[in-house]
Design a protein around this nucleic acid. Structure first.
Lengths: 131, 131
DNA sequence: CTAAATGCTGGAGTATGCTCTAGGTCAAGG
DNA sequence: CCTTGACCTAGAGCATACTCCAGCATTTAG
């Protein structure tokens, strides 16, 4: 699979794929006779996992850290698990913050509804000048 | 209240306060004889609200949009409510995504525990070379 | 065989959200 | 009076995560 095809399949731009390779998130793929990258289809699994990490806003640096451990094989499983557990902790805290913020926002919106209602009430008492 | 004091009270750096003023997130404060900014303590409420929006990753552009409406008075209450309701929608979606990602991460971590266990089991059968 | 499409590299550019610097001015204590 | 600390402006610089560009090589369809 060449880079254009992979790009279409995984939804990342060609530039992004090359960028990810440059920063060490993707292993350097084999090259064909003309020097073009040739990807093993198995890279899709990895890209899918990276997409998960990305969706949770894990910074690229941490993703790269993870990738480096992964490249070292099964013996780094414990370290990788720790890294993911730390990240999970952060996500759980984020979830808590998000809940709080959603509640605060709902309250604020309720207040706005009240303001709008008050204005309406006011208009009923004092009809507008142009009416 | 001068900028240094406000900075300490609200937790934003002096530079950030000036930056927020520049982009229109904070109204231009009065100045004293020497041209130094003098803030009304009421600004703390506004900064508190902005902190909420920031915590939910509302981009500064949107915050500025909100600030502009706010500066126009109560007649923009409905528009501001809409803006907040849109943002709330996004947060609810974010909450859903976060939940999914947390579950996926938990699964992944469980898999790692299994790998670690397998390695351990393996070591029991084939004691290490250096033992 | 050739033209269009695809790929290559290195490096510059972009957007966001600050953060820092240079080169001053202003205010308060010793 | 003079030093020190807080403040001022305009503009440069930084981290993150891409995104685009120039200029050239390779591949593929007709």
């Amino acid at each position: 699979m060449k880079i254009g095809e992979l790009s279409k399949k995984c939804g990342l731009s060609i530039d992004t794929l090359r960028f990810y390779e440059k920063i060490g998130l993707l292993e350097k793929p084999l090259r064909d006779g003309g020097g073009h990258r040739v990807y093993d289809p198995a890279i899709m699994q990895w890209l899918g996992f990276l997409a998960r990490l990305k969706e949770t806003d894990m910074p690229l640096k941490k993703q790269v850290e993870y990738a480096k451990l992964r490249a070292m094989g099964n013996k780094t499983a414990a370290l990788r698990r720790e890294l993911l557990e730390n990240h999970l902790q952060e996500l759980l805290e984020e979830q808590k913050r998000l809940k709080d913020n959603i509640n605060a926002l709902k309250t604020k919106i309720t207040i706005y509804r009240q303001i709008e209602k008050d204005i309406d009430d006011d208009n009923q008492h004092k009809p507008q000048p142009n009416s």
